[in-house]
């Protein structure tokens, strides 16, 4: 079930018109192989500080995995990179442009070069699978209907769901919906794809296919991939670089082999999945005994 077409062959929208405004200068320095540069990022949700001085680099053409316990803010990080949220402090640069300083038009121009796979899929429930994948193509290109059809079917073939093209999102399983969302995310042949938990809800076979698809998409067209996942085995298998984040900071980073060789207890606990250790399974709160004895409020 290999994709029969590299994503680079499609008639792209990746032309001069989509370069994001003032990025001209930054693009000239092709030596800069960092596509996304995050510096000293601080982000709060009410009282809770999600990120506290986070530094993170995502290199061009590589698969970067971001891992961390549930609730550390991995989804939040992707939302910050795509400009859905604005940081409280610090800088987030994509291709040399500070995302949080862009106006709406420039942000939309930048987003045409990005694909994002939502944790929930986020398919349009009024459209069937085919139209969902065709949506960004219809929005941003003037392809003829026959070409559009071919392209959509190829994308669906890549995720193994060509036969499901007439189904409605409500008729898909969670894993299928996520794969359709992946086909939609790659429809416009973006330069960077952000995957939020692509492997959850996949059986071993489609998981294996997805892993190789992500790798292949990345290599076939010099794509940059950001992969958020809990799945240590799969992530280490395809990632070129791994960030482990916890409590608003980067705890460890490096190539899969470096991470595997890392001796710190935190990293070992997370990577080997041990319930006991410095990582807390529990969301911060008072001790259990104190909480149970507390007759007061809730």
């Amino acid at each position: 079930m290999m994709p029969s077409q590299g994503p680079g062959d499609a008639p792209g929208v990746r032309g001069e018109d989509v370069s994001a405004g003032p990025s001209g200068g930054a693009r000239a320095s092709a030596t800069d192989d960092v596509l996304v540069r995050i510096r000293d990022l601080t982000f709060r949700r009410g009282e809770r500080t999600i990120f506290d001085g986070l530094d993170l680099d995502i290199r061009r053409g590589a698969v970067t995995a971001v891992m961390g316990p549930s609730g550390t803010g991995k989804t939040t990080l992707l939302k910050l990179i795509t400009g859905q949220l604005r940081p409280d402090a610090g800088r987030i640069e994509v291709d040399g442009v500070a995302v949080h300083e862009l106006d709406k038009a420039a942000l939309y121009r930048l987003r045409r070069r990005m694909g994002m796979l939502f944790q929930s899929g986020a398919l349009l429930t009024d459209l069937n699978v085919f139209d969902n994948v065709a949506y960004p193509l219809r929005e941003h290109t003037d392809l003829s209907p026959s070409l559009l059809r071919k392209l959509v079917l190829l994308k669906l073939e890549a995720v193994g769901l060509r036969g499901a093209r007439a189904l409605r999102p409500s008729e898909l399983s969670g894993g299928m919906a996520r794969r359709v969302a992946l086909a939609r995310a790659i429809a416009l042949d973006p330069e960077i794809i952000l995957y939020d938990e692509p492997f959850t809800g996949q059986d071993p076979i489609s998981m294996g296919a997805l892993v190789s698809l992500i790798r292949q998409l990345n290599d076939a067209s010099n794509l940059t991939s950001v992969l958020v996942s809990h799945d240590v085995a799969e992530a280490t298998r395809i990632a070129d670089h791994i960030y482990l984040i916890s409590q608003g900071r980067v705890v460890a980073q490096g190539s899969p082999t470096e991470i595997a060789a890392e001796r710190s207890t935190w990293v070992r606990q997370f990577m080997d999945g041990q319930p006991d250790g410095p990582v807390h399974f529990h969301y911060p709160g008072p001790a259990l005994a104190a909480d149970l004895l507390n007759r007061g409020g809730r």
């Binding site: 795509t82 859905q84 709406k104 939309y108 121009r109 987003r111 045409r112 990005m114 694909g115 994002m116 939502f118 929930s120 986020a122 398919l123 349009l124 429930t125 949506y135 960004p136 929005e139 941003h140 969302a181 939609r184 416009l188």
Partner: peptide, 17 residues
Amino acid sequence: LMKATEQLAGLELMAVD
């Protein structure tokens, strides 16, 4: 419901207002 199921956010990320 479109908001709750992230369809609106999905559109925004497809650069569709």
